[in-house]
């Protein structure tokens, strides 16, 4: 493993009844304290990849090795809490393991929402709720934080603030972060490494490298121009070329019906 927290080799996942695998032949590793972001269109298998790395789905091939005793803090996609269930923030932090008031206060403080203990989860704003979910994920002092679309439903300032928080948490705790995201522009700035996924890994590397990669531009089209502009000074390229770029056939959008 040579220090990697998680390492996947030749990982493939197939959903029951589907003719095409959701993920095929993925190789990837996550090292301590790095922020890795997975981007990709809808249906590209981002969430499946996360769940495969966490060991929640059956693999069709390949293997996932996790560091022995790896502590993971996980924030799943679109957590919805039934309004029928009364739930204070304090009580929520004690699920499933009970934590002390001091621990609860500390993680809420850390994620920028101190003093929310007595509030009902259902009464929180989207941004507050995401921070509470992050606080809960920090309770077991994770070596790896896994965040699946953590900024869904947040406005632009909210998104930027949330990624800033993630960087702070990483700097403070040394936890590695694996994120799945749609917010190309912002997320690229906050990442050490970006993995561009569409059933397989189309391209990966530093944000600069990925944003200039033909496969990435083919996958995200116009939206990629924004991230490209961010890094323009690193590259000497021609915009008119984007449409003509030759790339692997399976890097184009293919939607799972």
């Amino acid at each position: 493993m040579s220090g990697a927290l998680i390492r996947a080799s030749d990982l493939s996942v197939r959903h029951a009844g589907a003719d095409q695998p959701v993920l095929s032949h993925i190789d990837l590793r996550i090292d301590p304290a790095e922020i890795v972001t997975v981007v990709g269109p809808n249906g590209s298998g981002k969430s499946t990849l996360v769940r495969a790395l966490l060991g929640q789905v059956k693999l069709a091939s390949g293997r996932v090795e996790r560091l022995a005793g790896l502590r993971i803090g996980y924030v799943p996609q679109r957590v919805h809490i039934e309004r029928a269930m009364p739930m204070t923030v304090r009580r929520f932090l004690s699920l499933p393991l009970r934590v002390s008031d001091a621990q609860a206060a500390a993680v809420l403080e850390r994620t920028g929402v101190p003093g929310l203990e007595g509030r009902q989860i259902a009464a929180l704003s989207g941004g507050q709720f995401q921070r509470v979910l992050l606080a809960r994920a920090l309770l077991n002092h994770p070596q790896l934080l896994v965040l699946d679309e953590p900024t869904q439903g947040l406005d632009q300032p909210g998104i930027i603030a949330f990624y800033k928080l993630i960087e702070e948490v990483r700097a403070e705790t040394g936890a590695a972060v694996l994120m799945v995201s749609h917010d190309l522009l912002v997320v690229m700035r906050a990442s050490d490494r970006v993995i561009c996924l569409n059933g397989h890994i189309c391209c990966e590397g530093t944000p600069q490298v990925v944003s200039a990669a033909p496969a990435y531009r083919a996958l995200f089209g116009a939206e990629s121009q924004g991230t490209l502009a961010l890094y323009r000074h690193h590259h000497d390229h021609d915009h008119d070329h984007v449409a003509d770029h030759v790339h692997g056939p399976d890097c184009a959008h293919h939607h799972h019906a």
């Binding site: 966490l54 929640q56 993971i72 996980y74 799943p76 996609q77 957590v79 919805h80 809490i81 039934e82 269930m85 739930m87 929520f92 699920l95 499933p96 393991l97 009970r98």
Partner: peptide, 19 residues
């Protein structure tokens, strides 16, 4: 109790906690 409540709050969160 703790497991039942966690699973009722959110199945994904429960799964990630080994429930």
């Amino acid at each position: 109790w703790q497991r039942l409540v966690t699973a009722s709050v959110n199945e994904e969160l429960a799964l990630a906690s080994g429930i």
